[in-house]
Amino acid sequence: MGHGRKLKSLEDYQRALKGKYGIGEGSSYKPWLRIQDVKSKGKRSLIYGRKSRRDHHMMSSIESEYFYLAEFSNNVLDIREQFPLLPLNFTQKIAKNLGVEHPKHPETKEPIIMTTDQLLTIDSPQGKTYHAVSVKPEKDSDNRRVLEKIDIERVCWELLGVKFRYFTGNELTRIQSSNLRWATSPFRESAMSFSCEQIDHALCETAVGQFFIEDLCNRLISLEIASNEDALLLIRYLIAEKLIDVDLSVNIPESGLIDIKFVTQSSRENLYGAS
């Protein structure tokens, strides 16, 4: 994971920029802050991106929740987390105009480089666009200081012509995200290999409707489409690759039920297009 970096002074920020932190896209992007760089009250985690092909640094469970939802969207091409708002005097001027204090380091009291939790690159009819998202738990919604900092972010992105959103999540998004984590986790760093023939056979034997996952697994096994060890993985693969469209509003692994809404005819016809 590497050692943490000190980001306490202007010299530290200049060193970080020389190290290309907060710069790049896709696999080359390096977040301004990594999980080893800061102390966080939240549940920190590394998530290997299926689209970016790199580790994403999540500082809290709510950030991870949003990441899984955003990454699964066909329109999202890239996610850059802990994205720096530069230059420093830009956010300082915005804070001054808003009449709020600019964030500063608790030890040095020097102004810090502000970051946006996730900056999405969106494939839109107009071409590539960007969508900045501040991801905070719902309990912070009435925290005045948190809202002041979000306001600085909002104005910053609006001046840059970028859409800005504040995401707090809810019970539904938590369940949806949990399902996506369950479906995609085996196919992140090392993709599971299923043959086209195997996948197409599985799709032919899959129907729209609600089923017990165990029954679907047993059917795949009895038809010799998948082994005992791979049957559940194959179902998760079909969801992860969007070859079947399922209801994500019910916790699939917890309930043992899967509600299939649509099935593609073959592995060559991805339901949502290339991801």
Score class of each variant (00 low, 15 high):
residue 151 D to W: 02
residue 171 E to T: 08
residue 157 W to V: 00
residue 171 E to Y: 05
residue 132 A to L: 09
residue 74 N to M: 06
residue 222 S to D: 15
residue 158 E to Q: 04
residue 39 K to E: 15
residue 59 M to A: 14
residue 32 W to N: 00
residue 71 E to F: 02
residue 125 P to I: 08
residue 257 L to P: 00
residue 126 Q to R: 13
residue 32 W to G: 00
residue 173 T to Q: 06
residue 42 G to A: 09
residue 117 D to S: 12
residue 10 L to N: 11
residue 153 E to D: 08
residue 46 L to C: 08
residue 252 I to D: 01
residue 261 K to L: 14
residue 95 A to G: 04
residue 215 D to P: 02
residue 79 I to M: 04
residue 243 L to T: 01
residue 109 K to A: 09
residue 135 V to K: 01
residue 123 D to Q: 12
residue 132 A to W: 01
residue 53 R to N: 14
residue 168 T to L: 06
residue 177 S to F: 05
residue 36 Q to L: 05
residue 168 T to V: 12
residue 269 E to S: 15
residue 275 S to L: 13
residue 15 R to H: 10
residue 106 P to S: 08
residue 153 E to N: 09
residue 44 R to M: 15
residue 66 Y to T: 03
residue 223 L to W: 11
residue 237 Y to H: 14
residue 64 S to Q: 11
residue 215 D to V: 13
residue 149 K to A: 05
residue 29 Y to F: 14
residue 181 R to M: 11
residue 20 K to G: 05
residue 182 W to T: 03
residue 271 L to P: 02
residue 135 V to Q: 01
residue 174 R to V: 09
residue 49 G to N: 07
residue 256 G to E: 13
residue 119 L to H: 07
residue 170 N to F: 07
residue 217 C to L: 07
residue 32 W to L: 01
residue 240 A to C: 13
residue 88 L to C: 08
residue 77 L to M: 10
residue 65 E to K: 11
residue 52 S to A: 15
residue 4 G to A: 08
residue 126 Q to M: 07
residue 50 R to P: 01
residue 142 D to K: 15
residue 263 V to F: 05
residue 42 G to T: 12
residue 204 C to E: 11
residue 117 D to R: 05
residue 255 S to H: 04
residue 100 V to I: 13
residue 147 L to C: 10
residue 256 G to W: 08
residue 246 V to D: 01
residue 231 A to V: 06
residue 194 F to L: 13
residue 139 K to N: 15
residue 120 L to N: 00
residue 173 T to N: 06
residue 238 L to I: 09
residue 264 T to E: 01
residue 29 Y to K: 04
residue 264 T to C: 10
